[in-house]
Each structure stands twice: as structure tokens, then as C-alpha cells.
Amino acid sequence: MSNAKNLLTIKDLHASVEEKQIIKGLNLDIKPGEVHAIMGPNGAGKSTLGYVLSGRDGYTVDSGAVTLDGKNLFEMETEERARAGLFLAFQYPVEIPGVSNLEFLKASVDAQREARGEDAITSADFLKEAKAACKQVNLPIAFLKRGVNEGFSGGEKKRNELMQMLLLKPKLCILDETDSGLDIDALQVVAEGVNSQRSADRSFIVVTHYQRLLDYIKPDFVHVLSDGKIVKSGDASLAHELEAQGYAWLQKEPAEDELEG
């Protein structure tokens, strides 16, 4: 497999939180334009993977290598990774009281533009884009003026994450259960949001528990993450198998591996 063409390459990644190993030898290759779904039981390490990749404090890489666009990800600060095009939609978005969504988003967009050597976007242009993004995720325009996630409902927070993705136009989007806690309509909004952004130079990691989302999104690959590694990969049909059979049949194998090792 040639790494040169990969957008993201994860090689034998081991990572831990609070001295507890969570990611235990994970490999994954993502080419530009691909959509990878990651499924797996609670506590498997899906969110942890997102945090390790985006460089959250407290998440330690023990071994392994990750490159984004051929560059060593672990040599970059959290914000540098973001500026390089890595975006994480949070499973549990946090509130920043008093800082308006608009202000926050413009600052983020400008920081990323500055890193690319571009001028700050004018307020008028940005407002236009932000309104369009708001509309696309079906949030009232008034949400641009509200504090970041301040008092948003669970579903509104998820749509807000998606809106940020639309405005930041990342290369690699990691969506951590963006479909959880959404009503049926919103599920479609998220799916459409993702589909509208699919392009030859943008890739997705979609973490989800529900095959339903994948019916809309149609991933190129589905992986099962269990106990810190990918235990099974397949195409979209794997999601249907999982929906029918659960994860138990997959977990036996790695358990034996561990006994031998």
C-alpha cells in the first residue's frame, strides 16, 4: 500500500489516558475523498482516537506513527493540526458562555486563514457564509448571536458542530457520534451536511452506533473498533451485519490474541 496517497496514515498506534492504555495497536489508512465509518461498543476507544488525533492534552501517545498529508501529526500542536485541516465534531460539545457563535467562528476561520497566509475574511462575507451554513443545518439565524453552545439542546449542539465543519472546510472531518440524540429529521440534516461536503479532497471518519446514518451516508469502509484496535473492516454491508448480530462475535478473537501475547 502506498502511503504517499493517503491523507491519514495510522500505524500501530498505542495511546493512553491517565496511564491507562486505551488505544492498543491501531492501523488505519484513509485516502482523500474516502468516508470511513467506525463502529464499536461503548468504551472501545472511539472518542479517544479522535482526541489523540486532534491532540487533546492528557492523551499520551505511547508508540506508533500518524501522518496527515505526509506530515508527522505528533509534531504539531493542537491548533496546528486544526489549521492543517483536521476537524473534530465533538460527541459532547462544550459551552463557552458569552462568546457568540459568530465571533467564535470568525476567529476560528481567520486563524486558519492566517495560517494559510490569507487575509482575514470581511465581516460581511463571513456573515453571508455563516447564515448559509446556519440554514443548511436547520438552525435559526439567531443561533449565530447566542453564546457557543450556551443553553443549546443536545440536538442543536450537534447541528452546531456540523455548522462549524461547513464553515471551516476541513480536509479530514472526524464526526464523533454527531448522529446521537438527533431526531429523524436532524439525522437527515447531518447526513446531507456530510454528503454535501464529500469531495475528492475531503475525507471523513464517521463514528456512529447506528447503521441508519450509514444508509444515508454510504461509507466506503466500515471498521469495528473494539478494545483499542480495529478488529474487523469491510464495506457498507458490514454495518448491516453488526446491526443484526451485535459485536459479541467479533470480540472473541482479540481476546484469544491477548491470551497468547
Partner: peptide, 13 residues
Amino acid sequence: DEQMFLCRQRGLD
């Protein structure tokens, strides 16, 4: 930490 992480994840120093 969560607020700081959110901001930095969006590209803010």
C-alpha cells in the same frame, strides 16, 4: 480544559 481544547481544535492559539 474542554473549552481550551474546543478553541484550539478550531485553530485558535
